[in-house]
Write a protein that binds this DNA or RNA. Structure first.
Length: 266
DNA sequence: ACGCTTCCCTGGAGGC
DNA sequence: TGCCTCCAGGGAAGCG
């Protein structure tokens, strides 16, 4: 479930491994994860080129191709990157593999194939086409701008946090985490929240996302008091107050909440 | 605009 | 051992 912190870690991984090397070949093992081009066209687009730098917007990763254009990588629910040398080290489900002239490969791995890679000619135009909202870690997203995003909107606060057209980067896991740290129930109505609630959400969001990146998104490396490592734990208790955590349906997803720290009025 | 459902996919878990 | 169903949850799409 790659969300903003996961994709940021992938971005840094790609920066540390796969930049400034000439692409010798692009091998597509499953064409379903190549979007907006045929595998042959993708290979033609990248062959002889280098990835020069990366950018991330929300859950989307973009690698600048020298010359012109970009490669988009979107990871769906099970996607990740793997850089390796030799067929023995090749991961399973490496549906698209970028082979460099130094003998290494970067594989786009995605067991469930809900992600994709795509050539992008004009990044600004493509971002507009995607209708992505402001990145959740955009430095320009101050408390006032955050409040403005909620202006005139209604519905469950968790839906709003996960709406990529409003705020890009949060999914089920990190919206839960932010709501927990802000003490707000995922089913609370956005229009019922006060300014102070929105300010608290805004403040906790940056801290949560940055801490997760710092931990390289490893659950065991998350700061104390995080909900995330407890998601898979049956009968887990709130790290703050010890109350049994509950799973509730919110926005079509299973949300993890502390009923004491995140009360639901009514 | 919102809320709900279905679909895309795969694999692990649990029931029978 | 195997078959069936459910569930995971990013995103698009369709409907009321």
């Amino acid at each position: 479930m790659p969300e903003l912190p996961d994709v940021e870690v992938f971005r840094r991984y790609m920066d540390a491994t796969a930049l400034h090397q000439t692409v010798a070949e692009v091998v597509t093992a499953d064409a379903r994860v190549v979007q907006g081009a045929t595998p042959a066209d993708l290979a033609t687009f990248l062959r002889g080129r280098r990835f020069e730098r990366t950018e991330r917007h929300g859950k989307h990763l973009f690698a600048a191709v020298d010359g012109d254009g970009w490669l988009e990588l979107h990871f769906g629910m099970t996607g990740f990157l793997r850089y390796y040398q030799g067929a023995d080290a090749a991961p399973a489900h490496g549906h698209v593999r970028f082979r460099f002239d130094n003998g290494y490969e970067l594989a786009f791995v995605d067991r469930r194939k809900l992600g994709h890679v795509a050539p992008v000619a004009d990044l600004a135009a493509y971002l507009a086409e995607l209708e992505l909202g402001v990145d959740a870690l955009d430095p320009g997203l101050d408390a006032a701008a955050f409040r403005e995003l909620a202006n005139g909107r209604r519905g469950q606060v968790k839906c709003w946090l996960m709406d990529q057209a409003t705020l890009a980067g949060l999914g089920n896991v990190y919206s839960d985490e932010v709501l927990f740290h802000a003490g707000i129930h995922p089913r609370r109505r956005l229009e019922d929240l006060e300014g102070a609630d929105l300010d608290r959400l805004h403040g906790r969001m940056a801290g949560v996302l940055e801490a997760a990146v710092q931990a390289k998104v490893r659950p065991e490396a998350m700061p104390a008091g995080f909900l995330l490592p407890l998601r898979e734990v049956e009968g887990a208790r709130c790290p703050r107050c010890g109350t049994s955590l509950e799973r509730v349906k919110a926005c079509g997803r299973t949300a993890l909440v502390c009923p004491a720290c995140q009360p639901l009025p009514g």
